Amino acid sequence: MFYESSKYPFTAQILAKYDQIKEEMERTLALPLQQLDQNTWAGERPNYLTSSFDAKLAWKTYVFKYFGINHRPNQEACPVFSKLLEEFPFIATAEFSMLEPNTHILPHKGFTGKVLRSHLGMVVPEGDLGIRVGNETRKWKEKEWLVFDDSIEHEAWNKTAQRRIVLMIDFDPDLSAQKVNKVCKEVLMKTNDKHMMDIASREDWLNWFDKGEFPRDL
């Protein structure tokens, strides 16, 4: 269910900049919640969660790229990671993913089996937390990658008293920019995901994909 990150050289290249990326991440933590076209974190899929925290904010992401669509304000605020991201055009999605204390992301499946998902531990508290993919469970570790197929049923939980944050990246397993662009467009054409449809219509998503970035006036 999990893959060796060493098979994918870009993971080592990102790891080499880990301390600088973490410094950039730490600067984002005090940002106020704003509209999605601003430099901000955004609440993710409350219907996927159980939490003692506000469900709309228990799982938050700081998006750099989402299915091939660049989030320029967040990229501009984190230039070290964003420069790296430009070097890897086979990446479909990249974001910091924050799970608040006592939060459980319920079992679900991702959009496609044509990309792999990777998590790099940025803030990993001690205690009961982890991720199950299929019948295999792992725990995150700071400065280490977990790579898996998120089209397989998976769930994640943080039952500690502190936040858990990972850098999450979806990428083409053959490291092909051409293939990943095709997959991104395919996902955007087919999705009926409620969270995405609440943000914009499928037509808008496809227009943003064609332009390569989100508008600054969402």
Score class of each variant (00 low, 15 high):
4 E>R: 15
7 K>C: 13
7 K>L: 14
17 K>P: 00
18 Y>W: 02
22 K>W: 05
22 K>N: 08
27 R>A: 02
28 T>P: 07
29 L>R: 13
35 Q>I: 08
44 E>G: 09
61 T>F: 07
61 T>M: 08
63 V>A: 03
65 K>M: 11
65 K>L: 09
68 G>A: 10
71 H>F: 00
83 K>I: 02
85 L>R: 06
87 E>M: 03
90 F>L: 05
93 T>F: 00
96 F>W: 03
99 L>S: 02
99 L>H: 02
99 L>I: 07
100 E>C: 10
102 N>F: 08
107 P>V: 04
121 G>K: 05
121 G>L: 01
123 V>S: 01
124 V>P: 03
130 G>V: 00
133 V>A: 12
134 G>K: 13
134 G>S: 11
138 R>K: 15
140 W>T: 02
141 K>G: 10
142 E>F: 03
142 E>M: 03
143 K>S: 11
157 W>P: 09
157 W>Q: 11
158 N>C: 10
159 K>G: 15
162 Q>P: 09
170 D>V: 02
171 F>E: 08
173 P>V: 00
177 A>V: 06
178 Q>C: 04
180 V>N: 01
181 N>T: 06
182 K>H: 14
185 K>C: 12
187 V>P: 13
189 M>R: 15
189 M>V: 14
191 T>K: 14
198 D>R: 13
198 D>K: 13
201 S>C: 10
202 R>Q: 12
204 D>L: 00
208 W>M: 01
211 K>T: 08
214 F>Y: 13
